[in-house]
Simulated assay, not measured.
Amino acid sequence: MTSETTTEAVRGGARVGPDGFHVPTVDISAYVGEGDAAARAAAAAAFDEAARTVGFVQVVGHGVPDDVLRGFADALDGFFGLPLEAKKAYRTPPEVNRGYSPPKTESLSLSLGVAPSNRMHDFFEAFNVGLAVSDFPGLDLPLADYPENVWPDEDLGAAGFRAAVSAYFDEAGRVARTLTTLFADALGLEPGYFDAFTGHSVDVLRMNNYALEPGAVELDGDLTGMGAHTDYGIVTVLWADQVAGLQVLGADGSWNDVMPADGALLINLGDLMARWTNDHWMSTVHRVKPPIVDGTIRRRRSAAYFHDGDIDAVVATLPTCRDADGTSAYPPVTVAEHLRAKLAGSRAGVANAAAAREAARVLAAGEA
Rank of each mutant, 00 (worst) to 15 (best):
E85S: 15
G99F: 06
L205N: 02
T7N: 09
V248F: 11
G71K: 09
Y210W: 08
V285D: 02
S117H: 15
D77L: 10
M120V: 12
G138V: 06
E49D: 14
Y168N: 00
A115K: 13
T25I: 13
A159P: 00
F72V: 08
S166K: 09
G13M: 11
A158Q: 10
G55L: 06
G233Y: 03
F123V: 12
V68S: 06
A356T: 15
I234V: 10
R91W: 02
G35K: 10
Q247D: 05
L272H: 06
G250Q: 11
H200R: 13
N352G: 02
F47L: 12
V237I: 15
G130S: 05
G130W: 06
D203H: 05
D203E: 14
A348C: 10
A324M: 08
V235G: 02
T6V: 12
D74Y: 09
A43Y: 10
F136P: 09
G188V: 08
R15V: 15
S107N: 12
A144H: 11
V243F: 05
P103N: 14
D36N: 14
A313S: 14
V217P: 07
S134Q: 12
R91M: 13
D271E: 14
G295T: 05
G13A: 14
P65F: 08
L139Y: 13
G215N: 06
